[in-house]
Simulated scan of single mutants.
Amino acid sequence: MKKAFIQLHAAVLLAGLTGVLGRLISLNAGLLVWYRLLLTAPSLWLLALLRKQSLRIDRRDLWRIFGIGGIAALHWVSFYASIKYSNVSVGLLCFSAIGFFTALVEPLLLRRRVDKVELMLGLLVIVGIFFIFQVDPHYKTGILVGLVSALLGSLFPVLNKRVLERVPAETVTLYELTGGFGFLTLLMPLYLYLFPAPSLVPTLPDWGWLLVLSWACTVLAFNLSMAALHKITAFTVNLSYNLEPVYGILLAFLLFREDKYMGGGFYIGFSLILLSIVLQTLRLLRRGQAARPLI
């Protein structure tokens, strides 16, 4: 059991590291995600073949999963764009707005009543982001792009719910990343026309960080969380992913000293968002359920 908890929090820490790597890699957001998927998808296919994992899937589910993979790719692109336009801490705080958008999107797509408590907790996050926006207006573009990322991120787990009832999580992840890579490859000429890049090829340090992002923060993190599931409940795993933005912000403070550049509005906003996470965690503990994390 102790080993499972170590594996779980190592996975969450690696997930939190993705924001830091977004700043370290010099590529623009679209190319960064394209190379991440280029390295990750074949690695997962190789692991699946070595494990003799079942890859059979209904054709209707296949195209649905490919579509969700495209949404996931756009979510990642906008997430890293948010970091490029602002910084790691602001990008991760905007990521926390996923809860607010999920409270609106899930009832609409799954045709159920709006959970007023979820909506209020999500609004608390939006108020926190508003404080950062008001006091630190030079982060405006990063915050707006980050909110787009959160909206796309809220679609990902909601659309996955029905698919995961029929298809194992490992298979869903494999095909979604493949679909995301294919979609982004088709989109890349238009993206580069709108957002020209000084170089299309990563530098040597970029390759190193991309390998960490792809193999450690994606493949290894996913496998660690799957290994932890053999000993602890899915609820505990999912709940622990609430710490992802917290870990990421602490890493950004430690590595880049972003805390030196943050005004009072950031800390007010961060406190409100942290309060929302704590209240939602306590609420989920009472209800015994949690949302599936987006790695």
Rank of each mutant, 00 (worst) to 15 (best):
Y191R: 10
R166S: 14
L159G: 00
P198R: 14
L159W: 12
L194M: 10
L190N: 08
F183N: 01
N223V: 06
A169C: 09
L164S: 14
F195A: 11
L210A: 03
K161A: 09
A228H: 01
L174P: 00
L174K: 03
A197E: 13
T178R: 09
L151S: 05
G179A: 06
P168D: 13
T203E: 13
R166T: 11
W209Y: 15
L151V: 07
N223Q: 15
F156N: 03
V158E: 05
T173Q: 14
E176T: 05
A197P: 05
L210V: 08
N160H: 07
L177M: 14
W215G: 03
A216T: 12
N223H: 15
A197L: 09
L192P: 01
E170N: 15
D206S: 04
L211M: 10
L200Q: 13
T173H: 13
P202M: 08
V219K: 03
Y191A: 02
F156A: 01
A227E: 00
C217S: 04
T178M: 13
L200Y: 10
P202Q: 13
G179Y: 01
A221F: 03
Y193H: 15
P168C: 08
T178E: 06
E170H: 15
M226A: 14
E176D: 13
S154D: 11
S199L: 12
L213V: 00
Y175R: 13
L159V: 07
F195E: 08
V158H: 08
P205I: 07
A227R: 01
E170S: 14
S149H: 11
P189W: 12
S199A: 15
M226F: 05
L210P: 06
V167W: 02
L192T: 01
P168E: 13
D206R: 06
T178Q: 12
V167E: 00
L194H: 14
R166L: 09
V219S: 05
